[in-house]
Structure formats: C-alpha cells, structure tokens
Design a protein around this nucleic acid. Structure first.
Length: 678
DNA sequence: ATTAATCCAGTTTTT
DNA sequence: CTGGATTAAT
C-alpha cells in the first residue's frame, strides 16, 4: 500500500525505517502528515496488526484526519488506536475504571477554591504579598505535574518563586486535601488522566508494537514518561523544534533535541523539501528563525516554482486603520477560505471581525474553546451529569446555585439537606423525602434578623404554595430561610425537570432540559444580564445579540447530542475528543497556536508591535524570546503564496487615551525595517 | 453572612 | 465578555 501513496524519496525512506527508535525532523510544509500516513501503511504492509499501532497526536482533529487518510488505502484503519494522549488515556481508563468521572478544569478550580475557603486565610503578612488565587495555584500545580518535577511542589515553587516560599506549607496542605477530595469522589482532571494511564502502562505489558508520536516538539515530560512506560519496541516520533510553542504547558524542547542521546541507536530522518510556501516566504522564515540557537542544521529546499510576491510590510497609524485596510484588501479575494489572519493575542480578533463584517466578508474564529464553559452549556451538561450520576456533588451544587437568591453557600446547605432527606439518594429525596430527617439544624447567626438567633428551619414553607407545583408543597427542603419566592419556584421547577427527565436518549434529554421552566427562567436571567450596557441601561441590540448567541450554542448542543446513543457516551464526548465546533465559512481568524498545522494561500499577521508580539508579559513566564520567535516562525510558515505583516503605531481604546507602540523586533530581524528607521 | 451589583482589566493553549 | 475585587442590599 505504501507504493500507492506518492511520497518523495526522503519521505519514503523515513516511512519505511526499520523498527526501532526513529525521529523525523519535519519542518513546516514538508509533508509530515503524508509521511505518518505512509508509515502506518508500511507497518500494515509488514504484518503489524492495526491494534498493535498507537498513534498519538496533538489534537483529536489531527488524528481523525490521519486515520481518514489511511482509510483510503486500508480497511484496517478503524482498528488503530489513535488520538491525543488524553483521549487514549481516557478510553483506556473508562474501560478499566468505569467509576471515574472526568471534570473540566473550571470545575476543579472551583473545588480547589472551596478547599481554600475552609482554610484560615493565614495571617496575611503584608498587603503586597498575597497568596496565589486558587486559579493561579491550580495552573501552577498543573504545570508542575506536567513538567514531572521530582521535588515536592512546595520545593519547586519556592525555588521558582521565592517570595511565595512563606506560603509553601499552606499550598501543600491545600493540595493534599484537594487530592484526597478528588479521590473520594472519583473525580479526575486532565492531568490525572495522564498520571493514571502512566501507572497502568507501567503495570501491564504494552500491546503496542509501534507507537507514533506526532508534534513531538510539544511533548511535555509527563507525556514523555508515558512513552517510557509503554516502552514499545518501536517508536516513531515526528516533530520540528522550530515549531515548539507550548512551553507554558510544560513542553520541553530538550525532549526532541536529546532523542539521540536517550536512544543510542536512534535513526534521524530530515525532511527538507518544502511543498507549501514560495521561496520569498521561506527566505523570510529562515532569516527570522536563524536568530534562535540551532539544534540540528536545516536546509530547506524550495519545491514550489513560479514568481510570487515578496512578503509585504503594512504599517498603519492606528489599529482601526489597520483593520479597515486589511478588510478592504480581503474583500477583493474570491476564495475566503484561503485567507487567514493570524495574531498573537486573541484580543486582536474582535475589531477585525467587526471590520470584516462591515464589509460583508464572512469570517470564522476557531471553535469557541469557551463553548463547554459558557454558563448555558455548562448548566445543561451539569443537569445531564447529575441525572447520569446522582452522587455528583459538584454538578448538584452548581445547579442549585443557579437558582435565584441561592449562592454557593445556600446551595451546599440545600444539597446536604437533600442527602439527608433521601438517605443519599437524590431522586428519593425529591419524591419521597424522609419527613423524620433532621435538616437545617446548623446554628447560624444572622445579624440583620435581630440578635444571634438560631434561625434555621423556622419558616413555614406554605407561603410558596401559590407558585410551586403541588407535588412539592411543604417539601422539607423549602424550609431554608434563604429561599425566596423566586427561588422556591425555580427549585420546584427543578424538581419537575429532574423527576420527569427522559434519560434513555441524550437528544430527548437535552430537549427536555432546554424546554423546562427551570432552564427558561435561567435563560431569562442570563439574557437580562447580558443585555445591559456598562451604565446599567438596557440595550435592545445587545439583547438580540445575546439571544442569538444563546440560541446558537443551544442548537449546537442539541445537534451534538444527536450523535450519541446513551447518556454516558454523550457526557464523555463533551469532555474529550468531541468534534471541534467550527462554525461557518469564510476568512479564518486564528491565534498563532490555533493556526498550527494549517496552511493558507494568503496570510496576514497583524499587531506586530513590541510587547504584543513578542508578548513581553508571556515571555517572562514561558520560553522567553526564543519561543516568541518560534511562534512568529509558525505564523509565517502557514502562508503558501502571499504574506502580509502589519502593525499599528497607536492603539486606540474606548475611554482611554491611545497607547503608542513600537514595531516588533521581529520586523527588524526579518529585514523589513532597518534599525535607523526607528 | 450571604448574595447581588458594579467596576475594571485583560495570557497564550490542549485535553 | 469574563473574573476578581470592591461595595451595596437583603
């Protein structure tokens, strides 16, 4: 089958390498994907069974595409184990430990925060040195985990950030409890996925004869250790050190550069023929990347022939002019999908999106990463999660706290009461509450209601009778004094939603949730919030926009649900490996990270100002100027024929005076600006 | 004590 | 547009 795939000699040589430890250095546009596809065909040709092949990619989209290409040549493609490290780990763990429930980072951050809240704030030293927020702490802990440091977290943190050393024990304590809580409820996060998978791989012999690892330059030490744990007889890694842009996630460029030291018999193949870009573009890319320390020599050979435009520098007085002019230029193109605008910071996209719209140019932004984290989708999914697993405390408390006048504290009280009323069974608690159960017995002091009284369970809930469902009249849970009339109504609506939910089909369930009075009330509140102006006044236009967006998300969720037969699968799908929700057609608006692996005829790289790109703030925390330069290199090498680099001298902002900017240092490095013209 | 309202600034990304 | 921080309101 390998023969039927058209590979050039160097690609073919790599694809048909003997089994062992093979590293392919594949620069941008040299046919990396074809080579991996060729490798898989070669393995199948040589008697390796598809289930003995593991293909690890950086995104699930990439693995789907590769498998789809293999499928053109071989029927065995579907039996190959393929996906991201996380997706593969998840599939394995679900099979062997079905009780585990994977949670979104946002949820776990909340969990961590709830633990921080129970701890004493610690005698706050001076104003200037506050402990990390739980969000920051979670991020650091995550980085620590992925970087696979041998030392303790506190030791690692103290050496990295000495001013936080005083809090080291505090953090350690919190994280210990965090780990315990996760274990207790069988919650896992994305990092646990890798840790548990690694442990499992160490314990049993690997079924894989060869593991292929794509985007090897972005592998982090934890992922590398999984490769070590699997320890396959043959390893096929493909990457390009000049495109390593995930240092913030622990990606370590030394993993790829030390490959030959780690595996003494390693073979290294280099793909040098670039099929993607014009000579003019490649020359620029090479000139820029030369400023980074070279690891392996690289001589890119241009294959594309013909006369192409040189990369063009565009400079503007301000960002509005930049957006308008670029939009005007793009209007003239016929084929919008062949155009991409690439930027370092997502904030750059908003104005451009508006400018394109005003010229009637369709555009699409990379699948909203925030889709699953948006309030509406998160709530709907939490309701699903709670129906699937009634013991999911995090989901329950989140749902309850969406009720009017009920925040996280009251939600906890109510959840606790429900557990008592149903003896741990939520459905029972709702339908046949144990009237004997003693709930709301905690003593709390409410100053506004007079002197320190025990106020719990004092109220008679019959005052809600006019608004709530008959079945829930005098339900014991309603006795919580914090529950308002609106709150009681929503609580009652939730009871109906929960007890009458169809759990057999995800699609029917989503429909049921979306149409429920509970969700509608929530929607009304959310839209009201989102249609307010800064000054608090209502804005009809904003409301329509918010409504449109809300409905779009809900529609997308409904259509996603249709792809799944049962609730468990559906919930898994929303957490891992679900098809990316790219909506619409048109000009591509991409961050540099999102543009990885893609190519376009026309590319505009915008906002090339010092501080913005390279992003100074990020340089200090991550891989420094070299990583920023690699980002620039990645952006340039997306272009096939035409490349424009643009910057704006002044950044105009609402309610603030314009900010002056200097052109990016990369424009000087690229030779597009001369030092004296500063 | 707890929730809601208001204001301000803004880090990139995958699972 | 969201999250954090501060302030108002029950």
């Amino acid at each position: 089958m390998l023969e039927t795939l058209q590979l050039n000699p160097e690609q073919r040589k790599a694809a048909s390498a003997l089994q062992g430890h093979n590293l392919v250095i594949a620069s941008a546009g040299t046919g990396k994907t074809s080579t991996i596809v060729g490798r898989i065909l070669y393995l199948l040709d040589n008697g390796i069974k598809p289930e003995e092949i593991l293909l690890l990619t950086f995104t699930n989209k990439a693995s789907n595409e590769m498998i789809a290409r293999v499928a053109k040549y071989s029927k065995l493609s579907s039996k190959i184990e393929a996906g991201t490290f996380h997706a593969v780990a998840y599939r394995y763990l679900k099979e062997h430990y079905p009780n585990l429930s994977l949670k979104q980072p946002k949820e776990l951050r909340k969990l961590l925060e709830s633990i921080v809240d129970t701890k004493n704030v610690l005698n706050a030293t001076d104003e200037d040195k506050k402990p990390y927020t739980s969000q920051h702490l979670y991020a650091l802990y995550s980085l620590y985990t992925n970087a696979l440091k041998q030392e303790d977290f506190s030791a690692w943190l103290s050496s990295k950030n000495p001013e936080h050393a005083p809090y080291a024990a505090f953090y350690e304590n919190i994280l210990e409890e965090f780990e315990n809580t996760k274990k207790k409820h069988d919650y896992i996060d994305y990092n646990d996925l890798l840790l548990l998978f690694k442990k499992a791989m160490l314990e049993r012999p690997s079924p894989y004869k060869e593991v292929l690892c794509d985007e090897f330059q972005d592998t982090n030490p934890l992922q590398e250790s999984i490769l070590d744990a699997i320890n396959p007889p043959s390893l096929f890694c493909v990457g390009d050190y000049d495109q390593s842009i995930y240092a913030f996630n622990g990606a370590d460029i030394s993993i790829i550069s030390n490959f030959t030291q780690k595996y003494k018999n390693a073979r290294v193949f280099t793909l040098t023929k670039n099929y993607r870009s014009s000579k003019e573009i490649l020359d620029l890319a090479n000139q820029v990347i030369q400023h980074n320390q070279r690891i392996y020599p690289k001589n890119l050979e241009v294959v594309k022939s013909g006369k192409f435009n040189k990369p063009t520098l565009l400079n503007y007085n301000d960002n509005i002019a930049q957006c308008q002019d670029i939009a005007k230029r793009i209007v003239m193109r016929k084929d919008f999908k062949e155009v991409a605008v690439i930027f370092r910071n997502n904030a750059s996209a908003d104005q451009l999106e508006a400018a394109l719209r005003s010229h009637n140019v369709p555009s699409k932004r990379k699948g909203s990463a925030s889709f699953f984290e948006s309030k509406e989708v998160a709530l709907a999914l939490d309701i699903c999660a709670l129906l699937f697993n009634p013991k999911d405390i995090m989901a329950a408390i989140h749902i309850l706290s969406c009720i009017s006048d009920i925040g996280s504290n009251t939600a906890k009280d109510i959840h606790e009461a429900l557990m008592l009323l149903g003896n741990g069974d939520l459905k029972l608690a709702l339908t046949q509450p144990n009237q004997e159960a003693k709930i709301y017995t905690k003593k709390k002091e409410i100053t506004s209601m007079g002197l320190f009284e025990e106020i719990f369970a004092l109220e008679n809930s019959s005052r809600f009778n006019s608004v709530i469902d008959k079945a829930f009249h005098s339900h014991p849970v309603l006795m919580h004094p914090k529950i308002s009339l609106n709150g009681a109504k929503m609580l009652s609506d939730f009871f109906i939603l929960y007890t009458k939910a169809p759990t057999h089909s995800p699609s029917a369930l989503i429909k049921h949730i979306l149409e429920s009075a509970f969700f509608q009330t929530f929607k009304t509140r959310l839209l009201k919030e989102r249609s307010k102006n800064k000054d608090g006044s209502y804005n009809e236009f904003k409301k329509l926009q918010a409504q449109k967006r809300f409905n779009e998300k809900i529609d997308l969720l409904s259509s996603l649900a249709k792809n799944y037969q049962n609730l468990g699968r559906f919930l898994n799908g929303t957490l891992i490996g679900s098809s990316e929700a790219t909506q619409g057609e048109g000009v591509n608006l991409l961050s540099v990270h999102a543009s990885k692996g893609l190519e376009f005829k026309d590319v505009y790289i915008i906002d090339l100002m010092e501080g913005r790109f390279p992003n100074h703030k990020l340089m200090n925390t991550g891989g420094g100027i070299e990583e920023e330069r690699r980002l620039f290199y990645v952006a340039i090498t997306r272009a096939k024929e035409n490349l424009w680099l643009s910057y704006a001298k002044n950044e105009l902002r609402e309610n603030a005076k314009p900010k002056e900017h200097k052109p990016s240092v990369f424009l000087y490095e690229a030779g597009l600006l001369k030092p004296d013209s500063k």
